[in-house]
Design a protein around this nucleic acid. Structure first.
Lengths: 341, 341
DNA sequence: TTGTACGCGTTATCAT
DNA sequence: ATGATAACGCGTACAA
């Protein structure tokens, strides 16, 4: 297909009988321009359908107005909401959003970040598998590429982040189950290697359960992208001592778990209670509605962008921004069926 | 924050004691380089952490390797899946993905496209409110910006598109309801002004219902972004002659509708049957599982990117690519409760 | 008030 | 096999 070359400053200039400097001044609102000159230039611009070339601008000015985003996946609405928040704030600031997905694969994280650097994103917003031991983040630090972690909580003061307190979220989930009388608990979690959030939630969950003097919950680690194998659930939930309360490390996993339990003939919350995490919208639409530890996903995306902007423009120091999560009740969380012990 | 300037060809060249031309040749794999020279250059590159500046490349070469994407929203998983497909194909081709959302607002469509042109996306993939009368598309045509419509079916041969047959999808939805014995039907649709897909699905639905000699279905137009007002549903579904079968123009709307009906004391499928469209994953997880006319969303995104690439690189003529949709059964679709007439 | 000219980082042409 | 240099589109310091 033939693609007509886009008009440049030069084209506008020659049509308006002025120099490219004058066109540039009109474009950037530099004051000292004679009104009739400006009119001629503007006429030429719209006649040619001129749009400034962002690449030329950025090359000249040495700074870009695009933010690179790296997330595990868009299949989980919590990440899609993050993007919506980033997108909203970026549009307001006149910035472009470059998006990439890692599919929970550390190798792809590195690839994607490479691509974002080559595209000269001014800064990055990213959710990585594990922020504690991450080659990709070290690279970014070494090369002084500014970034803000999203969801990953860093214990390093030099790494900016926006996240909820995932450990506390895990404890809150445990409390919610325990306060309903549940004593035999379990957790269905995304693979720890692919998600330090999942691991933190698990740690908090275990701590609270242990603190309450209850037996250690079973742990079922699941791939984020796969379906849950029926055999996995059967082994964990059809024993005599089967758990009556389950915490799932995210809502999508919770919905899959509930579906899996149903296939096993177990009803929620009649036989088992389930609480998820994220607070995705569909959780509120289904029956039983999904109890969850809700995160302000869109706001988290917004804040991540705003903090990145502050770091870039106002030289703000890296902050670890912790946003509040919130217990959201739902019908999936009920009283323990047969109070024991 | 201090951002160290990234090393350039010049930095690498002086460190390796060669000219920038030689570094460029190494970078681009031009053959005639002495092995030891190449080794020196590569050493300098990795020592400095050099990454080529994509902006400079694109400015020089006059062509960009980024695709601009405009979608109504990411809150609907069908669009998130589109992005995943685009992203997948783009990564394979070494392209970047610039993403924007219109929130179903034609004004924002124009804004976003403007921004994408300024960023010099080589081509665009977009879902617009109405492709038939759309200022934005006319602008793109006038300025010869290559694009591929996604979901929008164009009747113009010069406009490339990837979509399912939305009219047929509407007919199929009607058939599915009718074959279960339903005779009083209704449709819950996203606002026609914001979605020509919704309008086409409605047209097909109406045609099939009329063809079957059934009374004209009620139409309930809903904002995509809002909740469904209880009063709206009450008026439509609590009359004596209330419909027993409902087609919702997308799955998210269907889940909202089912939740609204539940609040009214109507159970699905006991009192009312519901069929949606899109085939989103969560529809299969909930109970009742959601019957739907499924679209291959990820594949549609993939194909849209590949066709755009073909148009750009191989001068392929614009194609109207129609992908198959598929009826997906679900428990939300049951027999009519009280066979009438 | 407007024009000239340089340089941002890269690739490609032309010399050497 | 390698180097010098011109261009890509833009912003701006300096000149007029």
């Amino acid at each position: 297909m033939f693609v007509a070359p886009r008009p440049t400053l030069r084209d506008v200039a020659s049509l308006a009988n002025v120099s490219i400097a004058t066109v540039s001044r009109v474009l950037n609102g530099v004051p000292a321009i004679r009104p009739d000159t400006e009119a001629r230039v503007r006429a030429a611009m719209s006649q040619l359908g001129f749009r400034p070339n962002g690449r030329g601008r950025e090359l000249r000015s040495g700074q870009s107005c695009s933010v690179g985003v790296l997330l595990p996946s868009l299949a989980n609405p919590v990440f899609a909401d993050n993007v919506a928040g980033i997108q909203e704030a970026a549009r307001a600031a006149g910035w472009a959003v470059l998006i990439t997905c890692s599919d929970y694969d550390p190798g792809r994280e590195a690839e994607a970040v490479d691509a974002l650097i080559i595209e000269r994103a001014a800064g990055l917003i990213l959710t990585v598998a594990d922020s504690a031991s991450n080659r990709t983040l070290n690279t970014l630090d070494n090369e002084h590429v500014p970034y803000v972690l999203l969801h990953n909580e860093s214990d390093r003061a030099d790494r900016a982040s926006v996240a909820v307190d995932n450990g506390q979220a895990g404890r809150d989930a445990a409390e919610a189950l325990i306060s309903q009388g549940h004593r035999r608990l379990a957790m269905v979690a995304g693979r720890f290697a692919a998600s330090d959030r999942s691991r933190r939630r698990h740690a908090g969950f275990m701590a609270a359960v242990h603190g309450a003097g209850l037996p250690a919950p079973a742990l079922i680690e699941i791939d984020f992208t796969d379906d849950i194998a029926p055999a996995t659930l059967r082994a964990a939930f059809l024993s005599a001592e089967r758990p009556t309360g389950i915490f799932c490390s995210n809502d999508l996993l919770a919905l899959r778990t509930i579906a899996g339990l149903r296939a096993l003939g177990l009803a929620v919350p009649r036989d088992v209670s389930v609480i998820g995490m994220d607070g995705i919208e569909v959780g509120q639409l289904v029956e039983p509605s999904l109890a969850s530890i809700a995160q302000p996903a869109r706001e988290m995306g917004r804040r991540a962008f705003l903090h990145l902007l502050a770091r870039l423009k106002d030289a703000a120091p890296p902050a670890q921004i912790r946003l509040p999560h919130q217990f959201r009740p739902g019908h999936s969380l009920g009283a323990v069926p047969f109070p024991q012990e």
